[in-house]
């Protein structure tokens, strides 16, 4: 579930508020959005793709809250991984991050033939 909106990174653009398909965030005037309905989060990670500041952190546990330490997550290098690995925004055009989704059927075929 969504665990962190990192205030030092957040610009208050509210892109996450609109992007979240579960309407988990509430906008806050002059501040980072609030995680208002954490239990509604469907752990799809998509809010992170729409946060250009990499200010959001979703923990993979979908069943219960897993409170995270913002400083530790900052230091972990895990912020922004989804956007980067997907080659979004400023990562577009980076050869190493090219979308290789097309390989999926080949991988399935190799596993079948193995």
């Amino acid at each position: 579930m969504i665990e962190l909106v990192i205030a030092s990174r957040c610009t208050g653009c509210t892109a996450c508020v609109t992007a979240c398909p579960r309407d988990v965030f509430d906008p806050v005037p002059d501040g980072p959005p609030r995680i208002a309905r954490q239990a509604d989060c469907q752990t799809c990670f998509l809010c992170e793709l729409y946060c250009r500041e990499d200010a959001l952190y979703v923990h993979p546990d979908a069943g219960r809250a897993r409170p995270q330490d913002a400083a530790a997550i900052e230091a972990s290098g895990l912020l922004g991984e989804y956007r980067r690995a997907s080659g979004w925004d400023e990562w577009a055009g980076n050869e190493a991050l090219r979308n290789q989704h097309w390989r999926m059927e080949d991988v399935f075929r190799r596993a079948r033939d193995a």
């Binding site: 990670f45 895990l78 690995a85 290789q100 989704h101 991988v107």
Partner: peptide, 21 residues
């Protein structure tokens, strides 16, 4: 296979990120 392991983040980025976290 080794090459699939390397390619996974660019095939399905969300799969690798869940493991890493």
């Amino acid at each position: 296979p080794e090459d699939v392991r390397r390619q996974l983040p660019q095939i399905s980025p969300n799969v690798t990120l869940a493991f890493r976290r």
